[in-house]
Simulated scan of single mutants.
Amino acid sequence: MKIAIGSDHAGYLYKQAILQHLQAAGHEVEDFGTHSTDPVDYPKFIRPVAEAVAAGKFERGIVLGGSGNGEAITANRVRGIRCGLCWNLESARLTRLHNDANVLSLGERMMDLPTALQIVDTFLTTPFEGGRHLARIQQLDE
């Protein structure tokens, strides 16, 4: 799967670990930055991830920050993006199953790394259920 990934400084360490995890699993991943823990403004790194996913250049996106809230808000400002802020496996499963989320937002300060990696795997492997959820998603773009 082609995946775009980006973070601010507060999500940088998990971004690096997730990037390696995804590459080891055979995914094609492009890192949109940031490239250190030096303080940055998150929209500069998150919006390009969302725009690349919305343009169809990537199948999914993953964005990270301290809490993941600002990153989810930024990504969801891009038309065609459905970014879910996830904090456990069930939230990751449901954001795909019911919302067909195409971008995942994680907060590095909100969970340990093994949990974050499990959330990423759940997000990438859970299919969209469709059915009654499809009409609701179509309403988002009306």
Rank of each mutant, 00 (worst) to 15 (best):
73 I>K: 04
27 H>I: 04
3 I>L: 08
71 E>W: 02
100 D>Q: 08
55 A>Q: 11
78 V>M: 03
79 R>S: 12
30 E>T: 12
75 A>W: 07
89 L>I: 11
47 R>F: 05
79 R>K: 15
117 L>V: 03
118 Q>D: 14
39 P>Q: 13
106 L>C: 01
120 V>I: 00
23 Q>F: 10
115 T>I: 12
15 K>G: 00
100 D>I: 13
120 V>R: 12
54 A>Q: 10
26 G>P: 03
117 L>C: 13
16 Q>E: 15
56 G>H: 08
6 G>S: 12
41 D>Y: 02
122 T>E: 14
71 E>G: 00
10 A>C: 08
30 E>W: 14
126 T>W: 01
142 E>S: 14
33 G>Q: 11
88 N>Q: 09
139 Q>L: 07
11 G>F: 12
114 P>F: 08
12 Y>K: 00
26 G>V: 09
9 H>Y: 03
33 G>S: 11
73 I>T: 01
96 R>S: 10
1 M>W: 00
99 N>C: 04
21 H>R: 14
82 R>W: 13
9 H>P: 03
32 F>G: 06
53 V>L: 00
129 E>H: 02
86 C>T: 11
102 N>L: 11
37 T>Y: 08
87 W>N: 02
76 N>Q: 03
59 E>T: 12
5 I>A: 03
109 R>G: 04
64 L>Q: 02
89 L>E: 13
8 D>V: 00
64 L>I: 04
66 G>W: 08
122 T>I: 01
92 A>Y: 12
103 V>P: 05
6 G>E: 12
97 L>D: 07
29 V>K: 07
80 G>M: 08
85 L>C: 13
123 F>E: 03
123 F>I: 13
111 M>F: 09
43 P>K: 02
34 T>N: 00
43 P>M: 10
48 P>R: 10
114 P>Q: 07
96 R>K: 15
67 S>I: 01
75 A>N: 05
2 K>W: 06
127 P>E: 04
40 V>E: 03
32 F>P: 02
100 D>M: 09
57 K>N: 11
100 D>S: 01
12 Y>P: 00
97 L>A: 15
135 A>V: 07
